[in-house]
Design a protein around this nucleic acid. Structure first.
Lengths: 255, 255
DNA sequence: GGTGCGGCCTCACGCTACGTGAGGGTCAAG
DNA sequence: CTTGACCCTCACGTAGCGTGAGGCCGCACC
């Protein structure tokens, strides 16, 4: 069974997914000349033509012009590996770009649901081609733990307003319970406070990202070190953020 | 200072990254009419126009036609969230598609380094549009019989009579070659028989479903255990199915 | 051996989404 | 009051095919 090695346009079209007209076009402009003809004029394509077509489709997928593709294919006809590496790099760039769009979109969704509005300039920024990787790095650095951040973005993007109402209600209840515990004189390392800390951890895990005890400890550290948190929370009760921090540590340590 | 809220074409172009001509075009076809004009005829765009432009650019990035975009934007003018979710879904699909291409490319790079050649069909397979997530999941797991069967069904459905003639010719040639190899006393684990086994695998991959070495081993097992095969094949020559089975294993093991 | 019928051929015009001037007003600065 | 950047409206050009029109293979079926 030497592979028959001779396909007509229709067969090639069905195998590859491009149209017959496209094959005609590629033949016309010399990008993919049929390597043979039957006596009656039918185009015949060989396996090597299929290989070339595949390359063409790859570069087309990446939005190259046909003339560019022709140049690329002619240029480094020798280096097969170069092609592959090239394509690989470009695909990764595209992944990065799409990822950037995704992240931006997710941010917008979240922002919208929480009633925050981005400025038009902020919104257009993501389309700039050069700043993509930068944008990405910035987001990663801001949140140190990339996975948690990404996971959070993924999940919250799908939330509806109802979800957010519910989430906020849960969070408020947790905060109120903490406040009550403080008022009741419950020690931060006591069972009540620890239970509330556990509730808090599960709240995060349920709605935002998987939050283990280690992660929770990190959060606790942030709660007493980041002024954005301490300021808001210590308005609720004196020493609130410190109390929550201690409760989290107690809960994490006991687990 | 109230937000300026009135931009000329050039400003919008610089902010958004599209060309002035594109803005003119979108105005002409009514996709993004300038919300105002100065006395001297200069187009003026407001913030809401920028928002709309951003949406347009998003859908364009995803290769929608301008008329489609117009319909989408008019259709669900109410549901902002719907837009966002829609875009989100599409971006994720694109991520999946690019990931699929990447995976295939990496596979090819690896294969090339190991000196193995993929069949053309294996290579084209990744370009199929609808079945990407499915394809990916399938590839992640190992191929079960049902998946191979479904893929086979999908592909063979499009084959014409011509294709089938060609397929049968290829298959017959392979069988005849195996029979000749047996007659010539070629060992089942020798180079000739292994080459024929490889030809057989590529035949399957080319016309029916992606058949890797693992899958091929499964097939081999079936050839000696399923009476429908043994009966037909052992009519050709004594021990035919066993011989084919051994050759396939030898070929798969050596790869 | 005619008669379909599906596949192939070559023109050749149409379409989308702009690019690219040509020819000419407009506006703020020098 | 000129200069240069920016804007306007035609209007034709381009890429990458889609979509027939009109006609020739080739194989099956009567």
């Amino acid at each position: 069974m030497p592979p028959v090695d001779e396909y007509t346009v229709g067969t090639v079209a069905r195998m590859s997914g491009v149209s017959v007209r496209t094959l005609h076009h590629y033949d016309e402009i010399g990008l993919l000349p049929a390597s043979g003809r039957t006596e009656s004029g039918y185009r015949l394509y060989a396996d090597t033509d299929l290989e070339r077509l595949r390359r063409i489709m790859f570069y087309r997928e990446l939005d190259f012009g046909l003339d560019e593709i022709a140049r690329i294919l002619e240029d480094q006809q020798a280096g097969d590996d170069d092609h592959l590496r090239r394509q690989h790099r470009m695909l990764r760039e595209r992944q990065a770009r799409t990822a950037g769009l995704l992240r931006a979109l997710e941010q917008e969704m979240e922002a919208r649901q929480m009633g925050i509005k981005l400025t038009p300039e902020e919104q257009f920024e993501i389309f700039g081609t050069d700043t993509f990787e930068e944008h990405q790095r910035e987001a990663e650095q801001r949140w140190g733990d990339t996975d948690a951040w990404k996971q959070s973005q993924r999940r919250t993007a799908a939330y509806t307003k109802e979800d957010w109402v519910r989430i906020k209600a849960e969070a408020d209840a947790n905060i109120a319970a903490f406040a009550a515990a403080i008022e009741a004189g419950e020690p931060a390392d006591g069972p009540v406070a620890r239970a509330l800390a556990e509730e808090h951890r599960q709240h995060i895990s349920r709605w935002f990202y998987e939050c283990g005890y280690d992660m929770h400890r990190n959060l606790a550290a942030m709660y007493i070190s980041d002024p954005r948190y301490t300021k808001t929370w210590d308005d609720i009760a004196e020493g609130f953020s410190q109390y929550v921090h201690d409760a989290i540590l107690a809960n994490a340590g006991s687990a």
